[in-house]
C-alpha cells in the first residue's frame, strides 16, 4: 500500500457521498448534472488510487479506463444540457 492510495481513496469515498446527496436532494437540472459529474469524477479518483496501490510505476489500465470514462461523461452531460435547452425552447413556445 502507498500513502497516496489511502488519501485519494478516502477522498473518493467522501466525494461519492457528497455527490450522491446533492444528486438526490436537488431538483434543478443543472445542479443534478453538476452532481453526477462530481460523482463520476469521484469514481474515477477511486480508480486512480487503485492504480497507485503498488509501489513503482502506476497501473496504466485504470488510467485508460478513466480517460474513457471522462469522454463518456462529457457525452452524456452534453446530451442532458441539449435536452434541457430543448425543453426550455418548448416552454417558451
Amino acid at each position: 500500500m502507498t500513502a497516496q492510495y489511502s488519501v485519494y481513496a478516502l477522498a473518493g469515498g467522501l466525494l461519492v457521498g457528497f455527490a450522491f446527496h446533492a444528486l438526490a436532494i436537488h431538483t434543478h437540472v443543472l445542479k443534478r448534472i453538476l452532481a453526477w459529474n462530481t460523482l463520476g469524477s469521484a469514481a474515477f479518483l477511486v480508480f486512480g488510487a487503485i492504480a497507485r496501490r503498488n509501489t513503482g510505476a502506476p497501473d496504466p489500465v485504470p488510467h485508460a479506463i478513466v480517460i474513457t470514462g471522462i469522454v463518456v461523461a462529457i457525452s452524456s452531460t452534453a446530451l442532458a444540457l441539449a435536452l434541457a435547452r430543448r425543453i426550455d425552447e418548448e416552454n417558451k413556445k
Partner: peptide
C-alpha cells in the same frame, strides 16, 4: 500527483475545460 499525466491532461481539457464551457452557457 498520481503519476497519471494522460488523465491529468484529459481531466483539465475535457473534464474541467470543455465540460465547464458547456455548463457555463447553461448556467
Amino acid at each position: 500527483r498520481l503519476d497519471a499525466l494522460d488523465v491529468a491532461l484529459a481531466e483539465a481539457g475535457i473534464g474541467a475545460g470543455l465540460t465547464g464551457a458547456l455548463l457555463l452557457g447553461a448556467s
